[in-house]
Design a protein around this nucleic acid. Structure first.
Lengths: 200, 200
DNA sequence: GCGGAAGCGGAACTCCGATTCCTGTTGGCC
DNA sequence: GGCCAACAGGAATCGGAGTTCCGCTTCCGC
């Protein structure tokens, strides 16, 4: 209700979209380092236009991250459909990481660096957490993962792998190896999950 | 040989030490965010003095991190003395992390954020890496850890845990839990290392 | 097709923190 | 005790990135 929700003029809507795209690319590549001027330039717009649509850099960043986070709850819900509890867990973790791959600002957000106004997306975050918790509970009950696994562990491990993405960008070999090590620490001791995937 | 190594005047030596202490505390608490002015103030000195001793902020940061890293090789050598190969590995990993605990700038450096002129300490880094590699080789041979473990994995896992320190500061419960999960992913599948420590 | 509100552009400005520079002070050797 | 190079202090300067301002332009309902 805070938003008066006046329909934007055609050009404004088009420009807003351009900003989102430009900001998305630059924040993804450079994280917070991306500069407002670059973003405006890449969108082919002036500074004034940029600031008409977003009151400041933080708001733009938050909007971008929020958009990226939008799909997460859906992702979790999809993983819940998987019958095998162990697979469900590995899938949500893997997909979560896959979603973070290649987007520096999103990675920072997920690692919890922020001061981002997560307020706006608190609900989606909660939804996601709830789904993951259900998946973990099921996986624990099935005996496919260590008995003491919690939602906090999910965050811990995911953030760890994301830090590899963030600090060792480039080929994705590193973070996938990190994920493999992490999964081996999570599975029920002695259990080898699924037959090893051939590739990575 | 680059340094003319002229003995510093008494007051200069004293002040340099004060700067190191002040910078150490502030960089530890706030990472790069620490400001030169704060550092000078905390050392009870003027800006000019600060800049007389270190040409710029980066140099000061590098010097601090270098000093912190100084003990690392020694740490590794000590761990090598441990008879049990598995224990040696866990000890060096644990001590490495313990050394990073509480120092934000060191954590950033170890995670590889930098642009730090690691040149100056490249040798110590190499020495440390060599010792860790020897420890890992021995642990692998002993069958106490997964057969495919490498030095790169050590870095991966350590950085992951350090990211927990960095992004979830405060109590150390989180990173220790993270370490536990990581160790469980590293130990030879089915092996339970030592009898579980009761506490953490 | 017109009027004017909504939108745009981008130069100018603000802020803040690193760095410099110049004046005053001091340790250490004769 | 006196000299003076080394050193200390800290105000002024510099520079870079975010944000503001305001005259100009464009959409859109009449």
């Amino acid at each position: 209700m805070t938003e008066t929700e006046r329909p934007l003029r055609a050009d404004a809507r088009r420009n807003r979209e351009r900003i989102m795209v430009a900001a998305g690319e630059l924040f993804a590549r450079r994280g917070r380092e991306a500069q407002m001027e670059e973003i405006a330039a890449r969108a082919g717009l002036g500074m004034g236009t940029l600031y008409r649509h977003f009151p400041n850099k933080q708001a733009l960043l938050t909007a971008m991250v929020g958009e990226r986070f939008h799909g997460m709850a859906e992702l979790a819900r999809a993983a819940e459909q998987i019958t095998d509890a162990g697979d469900a867990f590995e899938t949500i973790l893997r997909n979560y990481l896959e979603a973070a791959d290649g987007d520096a600002s999103f990675q920072l957000a997920l690692m919890g660096s922020d001061d981002l106004e997560w307020e706006r997306i608190r609900q989606q975050k909660a939804e996601f957490a709830a789904a993951v918790t259900r998946i973990i509970d099921r996986a624990v009950a099935s005996g496919r993962v260590r008995a003491d696994l919690t939602l906090a562990d999910f965050t811990l491990v995911a953030s760890g792998v994301i830090s590899t993405m963030y600090f060792k960008p480039g080929g994705n070999a590193d973070w996938r190896r990190h994920l493999q090590l992490a999964l081996d620490g999570i599975r029920k001791p002695g259990t080898k999950g699924r037959p090893q995937r051939s590739g990575n």
